[in-house]
Amino acid sequence: MTAGNISVSETPLVLYTLRRADDALILGHRLSEWCGHAPMLEEDMALANMGLDLLGQARELYSYAAKVEGRDNDEDKFAYLRDVRQYRNLLLLEQPNGDFARTMVRQFFYAAFADLYWRVMMRSTDATLAAIAAKSEKESAYHLRHSSEWIVRLGDGTEESHRRAQEAIDLLWAFTGEMFEVDDSERGLIDAGIAVDPAPLRAQWMKRITGVVAEATLTLPNNGWMQQGGRSGRHSEHLGHLLSELQSMPRTFPGATW
């Protein structure tokens, strides 16, 4: 016997909260994949620690989504019993770890955004989201500092580390635009002050990453074409493989406890 998918009543606030929860869970899971495999012990700890921060954020957000939805879903059901098409995370965050440079570039692009985003979300008129933002903002600031230092070290390091960092930037760039997208379901929340319009954050984000990338002697692509789809459940092939591992236990042994 296997456990089937739950259904979710995706009202605007539930959907909005699930999108951010999925971001945190998927990136946190990716980072946890490094556990025991990082290039050095310090980074093994760093990646696991950041993964733990993100998992904590995901739990708070899923629990809140469950409360808002008001049915019998909970944090575990959201994480374990939705399939690929029901996941709402950014495509950037499900991209495979690749080498260490690719993991760091992915982290850097997202942390530079998350740090700005959560800081503004602290003023959300939704008290729970504002409280989650206040914790996440501090954590994101740390993640940003960590990944920024690595971008400089890799880019301005050896010929090989420079090449790998540049390849990672070129590969992941097309997934960054999705962070600043808004759809109809979010507009009402933005008007009500519950959510933040991410579009104005883009200039600040560009300024931040441009400075670090220049210091790292790397370059940002001129290509303005951006991939999207994650927010509406259209994912790259990688998410299915990730979920099959993440969900294997509760899918195989429904309701198992220990």
Partner: peptide, 13 residues
């Protein structure tokens, strides 16, 4: 600083 992250979330090495 040896590592920004340590043995627990709240510590650095």
């Amino acid at each position: 600083v040896l590592s920004e992250f340590g043995s627990t979330s709240c510590k650095a090495l």
